[in-house]
């Protein structure tokens, strides 16, 4: 009897602790959303404060961003395009490779797989400058393609797809072969649809990674109207910012769509973001 009560009490304490921790985790997000509804001058003057100026609530930041700031929407469009292209290309190539590694016994497949895992460990910082030089040589500086191409090689995704494809029934392939389907038909018409959940998880990993990516676009993109959202917002982040209305409301509008997506596709977000723990 005592034990049961004890457990119950501990459960309550633990619930309270978790509630506090969760609030701390959400505090920055909640506070920036709230702060996007006060004049940015007020935010600059006081910072994010526990004494929130409820009497200063206004929609002016949002009216400004929707009516006056064409620049912001250019960045938004760039980010959407780049992320979409990134998802499509990297999923297409990586799923083919993961599938081939899992389903076919070919010469060197094991060595190739080890190489993929090894490449996972090469830090981007050593590739950064030569890649930058390569982009200059290929005249891909300040283009979408320059941002996307190096990221299309996604060893993490290859690894993930391989693991997933290993669990698919090989008998389906034999059955399809008897029906006269080609190997490519088997992949695109039968196996790829079966890999749906893994595609969703990787779409989220690649999409979020590219949506939030900063260092590489910072090197490749030069002109303001090619910038992605993180780059554009970073240019507004100056100590003497006179564009803080766009910065604050604009940041909120980069987070909120993702959070909404997260609530609908939580499962895929979680499996996508915990694969290999590669920083996005």
């Amino acid at each position: 009897m005592m034990k049961k009560n004890n457990n119950k009490l501990l459960g309550v304490v633990a619930t309270v602790v978790m509630a506090i921790v969760s609030l701390i985790a959400l505090f920055p997000i909640i506070s920036i959303v709230l702060s996007s509804f006060i004049p940015s001058a007020s935010l600059m003057r006081n910072g994010i404060s526990f004494s929130f100026p409820w009497d200063e609530l206004t929609l002016s930041n949002y009216t400004y961003i929707f009516t006056q700031s064409a620049e912001y929407w250019t960045w938004y469009g760039n980010s959407l395009w780049i992320s979409a292209l990134m998802i499509v290309l990297s999923l297409f190539f990586s799923s083919m490779v993961g599938y081939a590694l899992a389903m076919y016994d070919f010469k060197g497949s094991n060595i190739f797989f080890v190489a993929v895992v090894f490449i996972l460990m090469v830090p981007f910082e050593i590739l950064m400058l030569p890649l930058f030089q390569l982009m200059i040589d290929m005249t891909l500086i300040d283009t979408y393609l320059g941002v996307i191409l190096p990221g299309v090689v996604a060893p993490v995704a290859v690894f993930f797809f391989r693991q997933y494809a290993l669990g698919l029934p090989k008998e389906l392939m034999d059955a399809a072969r008897i029906d006269g389907s080609t190997e490519y038909g088997i992949f695109f018409k039968i196996m790829l649809p079966l890999m749906g959940p893994s595609l969703a998880a990787m779409a989220i990993l690649q999409g979020l990674g590219s949506w939030n990516n900063f260092l590489w676009p910072l090197l490749v993109l030069r002109s303001n109207d090619m910038f992605t959202l993180p780059l554009g917002l970073a240019t507004l982040l100056t100590p003497y910012g006179n564009n803080y209305d766009v910065l604050i409301a604009g940041s909120v509008m980069t987070i909120i769509p993702i959070v909404i997506l997260f609530f609908f596709f939580q499962r895929y977000f979680i499996s996508g973001l915990t694969v290999g723990g590669v920083k996005g």
């Binding site: 985790a25 949506w211 939030n212 993180p230 987070i255 993702i258 997260f262 973001l273």
Partner: peptide, 12 residues
Amino acid sequence: SLFIPALTSTIV
């Protein structure tokens, strides 16, 4: 709730 911060970019 604890996962949501991972959705933001380092910049934001």
